[in-house]
């Protein structure tokens, strides 16, 4: 037999007309796409039940490439569209793919309220610390003093800690990983999809062409190595002295709580109201 490439992702990609993709070389978005596909393949979910929703930005171009139910919406609004779909078809597994600007700047309001409702959406937030698609403007996660095209003298704003934001708003599953830790990411996405409630998976990613170049971070391999070297698993945090934790990316599932899920609560309300009406 000839050596015919047969990877899992090939079964899930829309091959006609959609490629080549829009992402730059060295971008982490493809790794995250692979992680989501492998998580879904692992769970053997029916792809007719998978709904992928996105907003606007580099990461939000993902749905067009995959053979699921896919919806590419307005900047910042993916969670609001996803809420409508999930409430009408609660059996669907609704995955929102978004970025730091899309989800925590323009879409911040929808993020906190979906987290508060604890509606069963899985948000995969690819955090590249910058607006890539529009060419390198400052985002809510651009680090303090980093360079962006709209912060040419260095960013004077403090940055968001996305996981803390999601937890503060009431998200019942919150995890952080990086594009370097592909297997960990894939498993975390799987856990997040299984979790009945609002899940946030923050994937720290590399944007070598824009963020990396503006901030002299080297090429894609250097940025991947930085993710490896500058991150520590949650389990190790307690054993390390505080100075070794300072400034590091902490990876792992930061919260996994059982809390009433919104669609379940709505179904209960309907039952209650109808029982009362029947009397």
């Amino acid at each position: 037999m000839a050596n015919i490439p047969q990877k899992i992702i090939h079964e899930y990609l829309r091959h006609d007309k959609k490629f080549p993709h829009v992402w730059c070389s060295g971008c982490s978005n493809g790794i995250v796409l692979g992680g989501i596909i492998r998580a879904i393949a692992d769970m053997q979910l029916d792809r007719d039940d998978i709904m992928m929703v996105s907003g606007i930005g580099c990461s939000s171009r993902m749905p067009v490439y995959v053979d699921f139910n896919t919806l590419h919406t307005l900047h910042g609004r993916s969670i609001a569209y996803a809420t409508g779909i999930k409430l009408h078809k609660p059996h669907m597994k609704v995955i929102v793919v978004t970025g730091d600007g899309d989800c925590t700047a323009i879409g911040g309001n929808h993020l906190i309220h979906a987290a508060r409702r604890n509606i069963d959406l899985t948000v995969v937030l690819i955090n590249n610390n910058i607006y890539g698609m529009t060419g390198g403007q400052c985002s809510p996660t651009t680090p303090h003093e980093a360079i962006a095209t709209t912060a040419p003298y260095g960013n004077i704003e403090p940055d968001f800690n996305i996981c803390n934001l999601a937890m503060g708003a009431g998200a019942s599953f919150v995890g952080r990983t990086t594009a370097f830790h592909a297997i960990e990411m894939q498993n975390m996405i799987k856990d997040a999809i299984i979790h009945p409630g609002f899940s946030m998976v923050e994937v720290i990613s590399a944007c070598p062409v824009i963020f990396g170049r503006l901030n002299k971070k080297g090429g894609a391999p250097d940025m991947m190595k930085a993710m490896r070297d500058n991150s520590i698993p949650l389990a190790a945090v307690e054993k390390l002295p505080p100075e070794k934790v300072e400034g590091k990316i902490i990876r792992g599932i930061l919260r996994r709580d059982e809390r009433p899920e919104y669609c379940d609560e709505y179904a209960k309300l309907v039952k209650r109201v109808q029982a009362k009406e029947a009397k």
């Binding site: 919806l71 609004r77 569209y81 409508g84 409430l87 078809k89």
Partner: peptide
């Protein structure tokens, strides 16, 4: 919803799901 923007988005999403 949390605002009118979310409202129009939610009804559009639900409509695509068949509502």
């Amino acid at each position: 919803m949390e605002d009118e923007i979310a409202s129009i988005c939610a009804i559009t999403g639900a409509s695509l799901a068949g509502a």
